[in-house]
Design a binder for these strands. Structure first.
Lengths: 241, 241
DNA sequence: AAAGCAAAAAATGAATGCAAAATCTCACCC
DNA sequence: GGGTGAGATTTTGCATTCATTTTTTGCTTT
């Protein structure tokens, strides 16, 4: 075994212990989060083997907690576990992404419906504020800023639904496409930009009127169009690093 | 260990590349399924500790794969993992169930919408068949038969959506309420029965017309009413075994 | 006698060890 | 020269072991 640089000189040091957050002090839990980020952010190639030993050294832990984390990530759908053949970064086919976008659309449609039932004027105003900020980015052709506001608005709608189960489900699925989203959305979508902006107007309009069912429809269609734009060019292209 | 026949001197057996069959070699995977059933079917009380050692003996395995399975089940939301305090069967509060029903409603709404896009007449006819069977159960006041048909119809709609990601998400969440559903739905819901039957008529009607958006609304409302009926009496009652 | 504290016992979390399977290497045979 | 197969190496899956942490139990003190 190669020597690992382990600075365990001061044996009485608190190991990652935070007096503020005793619930999240699960080494395993943090490991899952760390690994998830590691994979989502593309540190491993599509379909690549997940090297247990390497990651053990990378994170300074033994195989047991790592394998537990891999099981969880497999349950989340980020990796695949092949019997006796190790873990691989899951490759999302065009069909997978197709499905994923639809489910995200369904969840956002639900979020919009629920949000209309309980959202207050202040929250609507807050979303409007971000919407207008997004519009300014649109006018300036600042795609990055636009996209960030866009994400924020959708996140705010999900948050306004006030449903933690929905939030968790949404986040879990969002994690799967984040890998793709990095590369997919920032280039060729300029022609759809105006259309998306109009759709966002409709979203806000339905939200203002608390028209839940209508907002549900608009959001689902919005995601559909987003999917069309995203998958049109995600298919042939490879993810650049 | 047991003796293995390793006399491959002359019999040139093909190494059986990938006959597509032996995917069940995952002891761990089967363990997850077994444990999930074990918990879902109520073999452990609400909020009870999940006794590691006992289950190890129960399934004849060591703690390592069991703990991996527990991590997965925790990710699925069936149990809770408290740091240094073991696993507990997750207790679903009224609020949790409230949320869960809404998300299920959103997913069914999505399923209905997608189903309308791709379902064929034959499949609609098949759903109609089960619907009429359900109606016969309704006329006979056969609550059990009715409920089974009911479940089947909802399952068929999800299947007709043709979206594996949706199916997996739906099943995962359904697993959480199955524990509750066992006890919650079979008794006091008789007063809602007629209403539910009418809603199912509307569901089928919208499906026949392939009115996706409308079916989406009807399904969500249907789940909402189901929730109201289920939670009205699930709150005070305890789960009988 | 009840409350509090300390030590034992049990359980949890992680590391290591070990057998089986898969992968790789390379000499061998056609 | 190319395919083949036996052995070596790596990797995977699970069991066992070890160090903490929690919980229980019994004893002491007021």
């Amino acid at each position: 075994m190669t020597e690992i640089l382990s600075d365990t000189h001061e044996s009485e040091e608190r190991p990652l212990r935070r007096p503020e957050a005793p619930a999240s002090t699960t080494l395993h839990g943090e490991l899952v989060a760390a690994l998830r980020d590691y994979i989502v952010e593309g540190s491993l190639a599509d379909g690549a083997r997940v090297p247990e030993r390497l990651l053990c050294e990378r994170f300074g832990i033994s195989r047991t907690p790592l394998r537990e984390a891999l099981k969880v990530l497999a349950a989340e759908g980020l990796i695949e576990l092949l019997p006796n053949r190790g873990a691989r970064v899951r490759v999302f086919s065009a069909e997978d992404l197709h499905e994923l976008f639809d489910v995200m659309g369904g969840l956002e449609a639900l979020a919009g419906r629920l949000a209309c039932e309980r959202i207050g004027d202040a929250e609507v105003a807050e979303i409007e504020r971000v919407h207008h900020e997004m519009y300014r980015h649109y006018l300036r052709r600042d795609l990055h800023g636009y996209f960030q506001c866009n994400q924020e608005i959708h996140g705010m709608i999900v948050a306004a639904a006030g449903n933690a189960t929905l939030r968790a489900t949404y986040d879990s699925l969002a994690g799967r496409i984040r890998r793709v989203r990095y590369a997919a959305n920032l280039d060729k979508q300029r022609d759809r930009w105006g259309e998306a902006m109009r759709e966002h107007e409709a979203i806000l309009d339905a939200l203002r009127r608390r028209a839940g069912s209508e907002l549900s429809d608009v959001l689902f269609q919005h995601l559909r169009n987003k999917r069309k734009a995203a998958l049109r060019q995600a298919e042939p292209a490879e993810i650049p690093e």
